[in-house]
C-alpha cells in the first residue's frame, strides 16, 4: 500500500470523510473515489452502480466497490439525483485503479449546491489522512 507521500491528490476537487471526491461542472457534479480509497481496496473487480434517475440523500449509500475479498460502500457526498453513471466501469472496473480521478463513477444534479462547502479541500483531506 502507498505511503501518504506516494498518494495522488487532485487540486480543485472536494473530498469527503469516506474518500469520495466531487468535481463541479456547471449545474451537475461528478463523483468518484480518491487515490487513497482505490489503493486501500487493491484490485477493484466490480463497481455496483445506481440507476439513472434515482435520488439519494446526503450520506446515503449509492453503490459499492468490490475487490476479491472486500466490499466498500459508496456514499453520497451531497444529496441529489443521478443523471449519469460511468458505463465504462461495468466492463473495466480496473480503470479506477489506473486513475481514480479521471474515471468518475456517477454524475448528479445536486439538491443543494451549498452543501459542497462542507466538504474537504485537498489540504484538509490530506490532514484527515495524516490522522
Amino acid at each position: 500500500m502507498k505511503e501518504l507521500s506516494e498518494l495522488n491528490f487532485r487540486e480543485g476537487l472536494r473530498y469527503t470523510d469516506d474518500h469520495e471526491w466531487v468535481s463541479e461542472s456547471g449545474a451537475t457534479l461528478k463523483i468518484g473515489v480518491s487515490d487513497y480509497a482505490q489503493d486501500q481496496m487493491g484490485d477493484i473487480v466490480y463497481v455496483e452502480l445506481p440507476e439513472v434517475g434515482a435520488t439519494f440523500e446526503k450520506g446515503e449509500e449509492f453503490g459499492t466497490l468490490e475487490s476479491v475479498k472486500a466490499v466498500s460502500e459508496l456514499y453520497m457526498p451531497i444529496g441529489g439525483e443521478i443523471v449519469a453513471v460511468n458505463e465504462d466501469l461495468a466492463d473495466a472496473p480496473e480503470l479506477i485503479n489506473e486513475d481514480s480521478y479521471t474515471h468518475w463513477i456517477i454524475e448528479i444534479k445536486p439538491a443543494d449546491m451549498d452543501e459542497l462547502e462542507d466538504l474537504h479541500s485537498v489540504a484538509s483531506y490530506r490532514d484527515l489522512l495524516k490522522g
Binding site: 466490480y46 468490490e66 475487490s67 476479491v68 475479498k69 472486500a70 466490499v71
Partner: peptide, 11 residues
C-alpha cells in the same frame, strides 16, 4: 465471494 457471508456478513 463478495456476495457471501464471510465478507458481506449481514448484507
Amino acid at each position: 465471494s463478495t456476495r457471501e457471508q464471510h465478507i458481506r456478513r449481514e448484507k
